[in-house]
Amino acid sequence: MHVSTPFSEKLDLVLKALSMSRGRLAADLGVDKSLVGRWASGAVTPSAHNLENLTKLVATKRDGFTMLDWDRDIDGLARVFGLEPTNGHAVLAKTNGAHVGLPLPGLDLVRMVTERRAATYEGFWRSTRPSIAMPGKIFHDYGMIRRGPEGLLEFKMGGSGLLFDGWMLPVEGQLFAILFDTVGQTPVFLIFNGVSLHKAVQLDGLILAAALNAARTPSAYPVVLERLGDLSGDIETDNAEYAELLTRDTAATDETVSQAMHDHLIRDIGPGPAAAGTGEMFLLSSWANSLSKGLSSGGHLQG
């Protein structure tokens, strides 16, 4: 392998090209997720046995892939997967406004908005949301939003052993997100109210997901994201910070959830509350009651 291109970068490129998470890779190879994490961080490289198994797995998804392909430089490896190398870094190739792994219309607009507004939302975040499985209880998740090499905002969240990985797409003042459970690959959809100021410090919206019960009941419920800190700009440092966040307790307390936040998250909805003027007909995240807010570049304005 070329010394100038660490294996960790090549692995990152391959995983993105195949839309595969580290958790899924570990499960398919039958190895511990922490081992894949060490490959991805560059701490270690795969043994000959693991590299052979990894190559066989990739070959099932990309015909003709062999051990020799790992010896290519990053641009050469990118071309194997139909990616476009740009200034030495492979980015996902565009085809009619889409890219490999996320074939959605309108991505050119998303890229344009992300180019202008990515810094507004990049950072470490904590979610606060009600529990569907445990009515009346509130929980936190911890996550990171970071612009990836393909020009989109990567969105990672996790807690209590569950990890979700996906994208956040800024469009028309809102943020549309899709996350996938890294084990079962179950999708979760989110919509947040965006902010107009330079730096978002809090976002509110709705989650649409299958509840974690036996029936996997389709469910919709409110969620609030609160900024915990900014990215350092160093990928490995930020990955380590995200890993530390995932070790935190996810159960909310009176100290982490105010009464106002509790009332925002647990509401009365339906014809009865709407008629009585005490609730909504539908579960909404309206601008009038939005908790989303940001700061100006100098920090003097908030709203």
Score class of each variant (00 low, 15 high):
A90Q: 06
N53A: 10
L92G: 03
L208N: 15
K137A: 12
W287Q: 05
T182H: 08
H262W: 05
K94A: 12
G97K: 02
P103A: 15
T247G: 03
D28F: 09
S232A: 14
P103C: 15
E84G: 03
A220P: 15
G97Q: 02
E115A: 14
G270Y: 04
V223M: 11
D75M: 07
A93S: 01
D254L: 14
L246I: 11
S285L: 13
A90T: 05
F282P: 11
L283D: 11
V44Q: 09
L231S: 04
G101P: 01
G136Q: 13
R111L: 07
P46L: 01
L175Q: 05
D249L: 00
H49G: 03
G82I: 02
T253P: 01
T86M: 14
L102K: 06
L246D: 12
Q174S: 08
D12P: 12
T66M: 10
A177R: 08
R227F: 06
E241K: 13
E255F: 04
R111D: 00
S286M: 15
F192I: 07
F81Y: 02
A26H: 01
R38T: 12
D28E: 11
V171E: 08
T128K: 04
R227N: 10
L83W: 04
N87P: 03
K16T: 06
G42A: 02
S47K: 09
V31R: 03
L35T: 09
G194N: 06
G76N: 07
L190H: 11
S19F: 15
W70G: 03
Q259G: 14
A274Q: 13
A90C: 06
T128Y: 00
F7S: 09
S219H: 00
P46A: 01
F81T: 00
L231Q: 00
L109N: 14
T237M: 15
K94C: 08
K61P: 10
D32C: 04
M168W: 01
L11S: 07
G229A: 09
A119D: 00
F282I: 14
G166H: 08
S4Y: 14
I207Q: 05
V14N: 01
D75R: 13
K16N: 06
A200C: 07
I138F: 04
S290L: 10
E172Y: 02
A210P: 13
D71S: 10
P271E: 14
R129I: 15
T114G: 04
L29C: 08
D234H: 09
G76A: 06
G76H: 05
I74T: 09
V36D: 04
G106P: 12
W70F: 14
